[in-house]
Design a protein around this nucleic acid. Structure first.
Lengths: 338, 338
DNA sequence: TTGTAGGCGTTATCAG
DNA sequence: CTGATAACGCCTACAA
């Protein structure tokens, strides 16, 4: 079942069938209809390989992410898929894990599959040392590279991200304005976005005229129970705090568990703010105040950016989205504002 | 940069290069090495389209799921991707949503991309009416179809699932044995797996000599707050219950929120059991007793099944995994068993 | 062990 | 507006 069968049955040449297939206007309406009828009748589907051979593209985008089972990344992948499909693109999903070697390997693999572009989900694809990012630059030499939630300046690399530093700055500042003086910061990743958040925290502390305290910046494992233990240990070591801000909802839940265990009242004795506005944040008790980084908007932006790149437009290297604080039960801003 | 360039530079024919490429043993070690060196030097990568054209396969599996941002489905997709990649297969991810028309459309789309097989994640791809499943049968006519968490008997369709009915039966029975007499069942899906779970519940009630009460089987929305409201309403209407078993952790969390609001102590006044052992289950307070359906094992089984099908083995139509009850704070079985 | 030539199903370029 | 024909890059008999 190929283009020849259709052309025979329709009594035209394969060139005409191909033209109909590709919406070429140089076909008489009558001929077009005849061909379409035959295609329908035969249930003909063009062979993507042959087409790919000629066009050297298969309308497919490679998506690289560390771990698609992470709720935040899973969301991003979902929105990307939905929006790319609107433009007729398929996605090949590829989960690399944390190892740089694997990231490189899989990126090469995607390129060898002749994807039309690569989208990297999560700033963890940006290595701290610029020289370790050469694998990205190489990729960018052949196809557009989009980075979600990270930023690096290089030709043919486009970044869509939210202003994590600003968001954490604002949230921290708000805690301070509401009378919290010892704010514990929890994080688990030193990725680009992780650094941004941390710097937002530091800046807020300094702007308020407070002193930065290393003991108040706690590097945790990405696990709620281990986070709880880490906080418990810090408290046992004499670290005092009346608020927690976490780089990730999961860590904030660990803080809630700590408060419960330590007999602290939330938000009275301890205010808690998370990050991502994930399902977890409305699951715990009290429900978690959290920063919403609008991953859907970011994903849509990324797709739109890519489409503009494809159509040859001049496209900004970076698009930044602002984010919101979603207030729930672990903070008492409202009461203070009355 | 193609096979001709390599053959020229290496001073051999393209056939020899092709043989080296495909690990054909009929090449002298010396020639092989020379060709490999040239390929390395030129950074040659075979063109997947041309290869696909000849072989009519691209070592790619299509994965269909309703919504890859659902934590449970996201997990399945992740494990599938990881395991398929071990065998050198890529995956094309395709999220359909709930509409049957879309399911059909995207399945056709995947087939037109010449995927080597299709994996359907979630029993929601099985329509209640067998005639509505003809789209699956059609697909099975051209490639193997794997269904995760659903079962239907048809040639070239293979199913990997856990015994949901048994799991709910066991959990319900355990509640009854521990003195609970009015068990509220929460569900939100009437998919194959949803039906299995419900039937497990019913059977357990009947086996224990209790009476089935329609009011105790509550169809909810897939949202924790709406579930809480639904339970509140039922209670207001006089429905009495001392335990809840939910087809989904999210619904169970709704029950926990209800208990909190109604001033009921968990597990003393109300025992709660969820399903899936998702992150949510260790996030709430108290932590949720839940049924773990071993999605990782199921995913691995599915991939292994597929590989056996590819190698032409005779493969059972269905593989069933048993599942465990993970006991946490919302039940008090342990105390009763002492 | 190696090389030659035909085929895979499209697309694109020319003539007409 | 339509048709013939040459790419596209690889695989695989078959021949040597």
């Amino acid at each position: 079942m190929n283009i020849y069968d259709v052309s025979h049955k329709a009594g035209v040449s394969i060139a005409t069938v191909s033209r109909v297939l590709n919406g070429n206007p140089n076909v008489s309406p009558k001929t077009r209809q005849k061909v379409l009828d035959v295609m329908q009748e035969l249930g003909y589907t063009p062979n993507v390989f042959a087409r790919g051979l000629g066009l050297n593209t298969m309308k497919t985008i490679g998506i690289l992410c560390l771990d698609s089972s992470d709720p935040f990344l899973a969301n991003a992948v979902y929105y990307l898929e939905q929006n790319l499909r609107k433009y007729g693109y398929d996605i090949i999903l590829c989960c690399t894990g944390y190892d740089l070697k694997n990231k490189q390997k899989y990126l090469d693999l995607l390129l060898s599959k002749r994807v039309d572009a690569v989208i990297l989900v999560g700033s963890s694809f940006l290595e701290p040392q610029r020289k370790d990012n050469t694998y990205l630059f190489q990729a960018a030499a052949s196809v557009p590279v989009i980075i979600i939630n990270g930023y690096i300046n290089h030709p043919n690399i486009y970044c869509a991200l939210c202003d994590d530093a600003q968001a954490v700055f604002d949230a921290t500042t708000k805690l301070i304005e509401n009378g919290r003086t010892n704010i514990l910061y929890l994080y688990h990743s030193k990725s680009y976005s992780g650094q941004q958040k941390l710097s937002g925290y530091k800046e807020a502390i300094l702007s308020a005229g407070l002193k930065l305290d290393e003991n108040l910046m706690l590097l945790c494992k990405n696990d709620m129970h281990q986070t709880k233990e880490a906080i418990t240990e810090a408290a046992a070591n004499g670290v005092k705090f009346d608020a927690v801000i976490a780089a990730e909802d999961l860590l904030a839940v660990g803080a809630i568990k700590y408060a419960k265990q330590a007999g602290l009242k939330i938000p009275k004795d301890l205010a808690v703010i998370g990050y991502n506005n994930s399902l977890l944040s409305s699951c715990c008790e009290p429900e978690l105040t959290t920063i919403d980084n609008h991953i859907e908007t970011i994903s849509i932006t990324a797709v739109n950016t890519l489409m503009r790149v494809f159509s040859g437009n001049d496209v900004p290297n970076r698009t930044t989205i602002s984010n919101d604080l979603v207030e729930r039960g672990t903070t008492d801003f409202a009461k203070n504002e009355i």
